[in-house]
Structure formats: C-alpha cells, structure tokens
C-alpha cells in the first residue's frame, strides 16, 4: 500500500512537470498550429536562471526558492515572447517553417547552454524541508513532490481563469476554434500569439526551476528530455486541449512510475506503448478534436 501511494504521488509530481511543459505546447499548438521544439530550451533556461539566483542568494532558504521560481518564470516568459516576436511571426501561417525555426533554436540554444554552463549536471539544493519526507498512509513521500503538484494545479487554475475572464483569454479560446474568423471580426490575433508564447514560456520556466529540485540538478539536456514526454502527453491528451494535457500528464507519469517499479524500469517504453494504443483506438487523443 505504502509503495502504491508513494508511486502515485511521485508520479503526480513528475506529471506536474510534464503538465508545465505540455500546457504551453498545447496552447501554442491550439492557437497557432505550431509545434514548438524550443519549448524545452525555455525550461532549461528557466532552470539555469533560477540556479544563478540561488547561487547569488542563500541557496537553502524559502525566499531564495521563491525568488528563483519567479525569475525562472519571468525569464521563460520573456524569451518565449521574444522567440514568437522575432522568429515565429515572420513566418506567419507557414507551419512547417515555423517548426523548423524552433528546431534550429533548440539545437542552437542547447549548444549555447553547453558552452556557458558545461555539459555536466550542476547540482541544486533547495530548502531543507524539500529533502525531508512526509508520511501519508504509511508512505514516506519526499516533500518536493507536493510543491510540484501544488504549482501545477495553480498554473492550471491560473490559465483557466485567464482564458475565462480576460479579453486575451476570450481571443485565445476563439482563435483555437477558428483563427481566421477572429481576424474577420477585426482582431489582431497575432498579439494573442505573443501572449500564449509568454504564458507557455512562464509555465516552462517555472517548471525548469521545479524540475531542478525534483531531479536535484540542472543540465543543458534537462528541457529536451522532458519535452519528448510532453509531446507524448499532448498527443495522448489531444492536441490543443488544456484539460486533455492535464489528464494525460498525470496518467502518463503515474503509469511510468508503476512500470518502472513493477516492470523492471520499462517506464519509458510503456509510455510509448500507451501512445501507440491511443493512436490505434483514438487518433485524435483523449480530448482532441483535430488530429
């Protein structure tokens, strides 16, 4: 029992990270039809930004953690918005080229991170409470999992409220459904593009700082390895569906943990098999409408 509880909560913690990446991917894809390969780099950069803050402050305090989360999110948002504004926008409606630009950006930035921070992992320490455990139903759960889950839930809630109650949110929801009709109502939908990139970048940057605590280190590959699972999550959840991304994140990560524990470390393969199964049964994903 305690093992199961531990696996579920750890899985949800990992799922939280997937969601922080997948939510942005999904929003960006839903509105713009762009698959953003550079999203992993937003995450990595957020993690390194948080790391640099932590180095300059007292690494083990809560204030430092908070500051690094904020800085990670802000850096992620700014870099993502700049990416949209300077690179993606020039290729309006040319989806393949837009994907290619993000591919180039991913390659170039990972190499740049290699050059700046080195290819080896840089270890990260958080507040002491992070490495302690809390007992739930007999399971000793590392505390950082709770922070991850709460952060992801808050981000989900924040995005939902934003979509529901702001004008940009309205434009984004409408644009996901029918982008050209939004412009035919006299709205410059490109501003919403920058906004979704910024939101996605902020979530990814935040996810980067949290991931560095979950894994205990930052490396230039951090974002890329999470990105692949986030891709799988977005396909399983249904491209462009935020709720689908949330459900699939939890599902995929928990399944992965269980397979790793009970099936001899086959978590990654199980996830790919799940993807294959979903494609066979329901190619549009759990909650997707367009394939």
């Amino acid at each position: 029992m305690s093992t199961i509880v531990l696996l579920i909560i750890t899985g949800l913690g990992l799922g939280a990270l997937y969601f922080l990446v997948a939510s942005g991917l999904s929003l960006i894809y839903g509105l713009m039809g762009v698959l953003n390969f550079a999203h992993g780099s937003f995450l990595t950069l957020g993690a390194f930004a948080g790391l640099e803050i932590a180095r300059r402050m007292d690494g083990a305090s809560w204030i430092t953690l908070f500051a690094s989360l904020v800085v990670g999110a802000v850096v992620g948002a700014v870099v993502a918005a700049a990416t949209e504004f300077f690179l993606i926008r020039r290729l309006y409606n040319r989806h393949i080229e837009q994907v290619l630009v993000t591919v180039g950006l991913a390659l170039a930035t990972v190499a740049l991170f290699d050059g700046i921070w080195g290819t080896d992992p840089t270890y990260v320490t958080g507040p002491a409470w992070f490495s302690e455990t809390t007992e739930i139903l007999g399971a000793k759960v590392p505390n950082d999992r709770f922070v991850l889950i709460i952060a992801a839930v808050l981000v989900l809630l924040g995005i939902v409220l934003f979509l529901k109650f702001t004008r940009f949110g309205l434009i984004i929801r409408a644009g996901v459904e029918n982008r050209s009709m939004v412009t035919a109502l006299g709205i410059d939908v490109r501003k919403a593009f920058t906004v979704v990139f910024a939101i996605g970048g902020a979530a990814a940057g935040l996810g980067g700082v949290l991931a560095s605590h979950y894994f205990g280190y930052v490396s230039p590959q951090l974002g890329g390895s999470l990105l692949i699972f986030a891709f799988i999550v977005t396909v399983i959840g249904g491209l462009g569906s935020l709720a689908g991304a949330a459900i699939a994140s939890a599902l995929v990560a928990v399944l992965q943990q269980f397979a790793n524990y009970y099936l001899g470390g086959t978590g990654d393969l199980t996830v790919v098999l799940l993807l294959a199964a979903v494609l066979l049964i329901r190619p549009t994903g759990l909650l997707g409408s367009k394939a």
């Binding site: 799988i232 977005t234 990654d268 393969l269 790919v272 993807l275 494609l279 066979l280 190619p283």
Partner: peptide, 23 residues
C-alpha cells in the same frame, strides 16, 4: 501506426518511437 495521424501529430509520434529506440 504513425500514419494513422498526419502533420504535427505524425512528427511527434515518430519522435516518440525513435526515442523508445534510443531508450
């Protein structure tokens, strides 16, 4: 299997299979 989807989904699915190979 991959060709059950097109476009961007196809890209992601092929990526996932290749990643499984890498693993």
């Amino acid at each position: 299997l991959s060709l059950r989807v097109t476009g961007i989904s196809f890209a992601m699915v092929t990526l996932a299979f290749a990643q499984a190979g890498n693993v």
